[in-house]
Design a protein around this nucleic acid. Structure first.
Lengths: 266, 266
DNA sequence: CGCTATCTTGAGTAGCGTCAAGTCATGTGG
DNA sequence: CCACATGACTTGACGCTACTCAAGATAGCG
């Protein structure tokens, strides 16, 4: 069963990631040992191809649930690396830092995404993760995961896949930052977000962003003003409806055309 | 023994990566089964912390040596993924592609570097690798490496480390493309190359680049003209000596300052 | 030796950044 | 509940960085 099929609901008209009544998410820390089996996100978090018993062993490693307020850090650059994190509800940004204080947002992470993989096989986190809104995460002790993966070959593949996905994701962003114009970057960002909302069973054409213009701009290598101007242009072209952070994609084809790809939108 | 100490030679005055008489590299394909033990690069390629016997098993997976001319591809995007590659001599660039033909160079790879890690846990290569000059590589069958790593726990860590390094490397590039000015990017590029030459026992202050201005520009998200102008500016400031692709870093401190203290230049 | 690819340099310009002013949304304390 | 403060966003004017286009120099290669 794919993550998307398990999560797909009767698509609500307007959805943000903190308001998804159809997803039953287990919040009770006391029951966390067996929580994964009942968690609606398990298909996203849990590795494929495990026997039931191994699945349980994996789930047993998830040892606590953490709650973050908007602006609160899940981990900071330089902190010792102990856990990987699964986003349960809410969203976060990951940021890499330059000595002189400059920052680059390297990603936005929604429910079901995994955080902290870039710290694997290094003692400390090279980047940091900050919640964009009220956010809940599950933590899994990486040392224990490594120990378990020596018995369960599938788990090796699982960790490798997490890392490889991260590499490919970063390469896409390199392409965006190195070769695309402002309009294209913004369009690519919206299309990416749209696809990810869709994969989570939410409407791909109407959603509320959890990040500020400045964070979008930083992510895309632009200033907040440029992002705002691109939004306004898409708005006046009838491609989008923009009301603060609430976005409606009115003309998906036109949005796709901005980045020059000839494939269909979804 | 570290890679650097094994490779360090009586630092030659001028070194390119195809002219390193002090490095004994085994080229004979017939003897490749046991070649690693005698290869000067083994400290760079071979995983740490293996027992002698495991080390031999690992070396036995390296099944052939491939020779590439300048401009020849080691693998193309979309080709099936079978092997990881170690650069023995020469250098390559890795490139990611956009549908419309635009390209982004994501890295330059020197002797001792590993190629193809971004394809791990996917059926095909997401990027492609092209030789910048006459280049020799060793190939290692990834499927066999995976099989061996189920017995040898160290090898799991080894593959994870390869992947994690790639993620961190890409994040550094994201910072460069998203937040740095042209002259900072060029300085960062030169400092990076300089460090890597040094780690290989070559002079960090005098070297010959194997890539064209256009490839540097593409890598840095700039045009070749901008790269050329940055080089010229550094030259007229007495920081560099530039004769085509032959670079001498005359004032390393000033070069470093370009990245940090921006007001000291121009 | 001539051809081609590569590189440098200049002139003009477009795109995006900077600065600034103003609007709007949200939250807070009176 | 309102007044106010604060942060978030939009829009305009202007300037600068880096791109484009073009011409010429140089190196490398057959």
């Amino acid at each position: 069963m794919t993550a998307a099929s398990q999560l797909r609901t009767a698509t609500p008209h307007v959805v943000t990631f903190n308001q998804r009544p159809h997803l039953r998410v287990v919040d009770d820390a006391a029951s966390s040992r067996s929580a994964c089996a009942h968690c609606a996100l398990s298909a996203l978090c849990l590795p494929d191809g495990l026997a039931d018993k191994e699945r349980e062993e994996f789930a047993a490693l998830i040892f606590h649930h953490k709650r973050l307020h908007a602006g609160q850090a899940l981990f900071r650059a330089g902190e010792t690396f102990n856990n990987l994190y699964f986003v349960k509800t809410g969203s976060l940004k990951t940021v890499v830092l330059l000595d002189d204080g400059r920052e680059q947002v390297t990603g936005f992470h929604l429910a079901g995404d995994v955080l902290g993989v870039d710290a694997i096989s290094s003692p400390t986190h090279p980047s940091e993760a900050v919640a964009l809104e009220e956010t809940h995460v599950c933590a899994i002790a990486f040392a224990q995961l490594t120990r378990l993966s020596q018995r369960v070959a599938h788990l090796q593949t699982y960790v490798q896949r997490l890392l490889a996905r991260e590499v490919v994701r970063d390469q896409g962003l390199l392409l965006l930052l190195g070769r695309m114009q402002a309009d294209e970057r913004v369009a690519a960002f919206l299309i990416n977000i749209s696809k990810r909302f869709k994969a989570r069973g939410c409407s791909p054409f109407e959603f509320t962003l959890s990040m500020a213009r400045e964070e979008i701009g930083n992510y895309l290598g632009l200033t907040l003003e440029t992002v705002s101007r691109c939004f306004s242009r898409l708005k006046s072209n009838g491609v989008l409806s923009v009301e603060n952070r609430h976005i409606r994609i009115l003309d998906p084809g036109a949005l796709q055309k901005v980045i020059g790809a000839r494939e269909s939108f979804h």
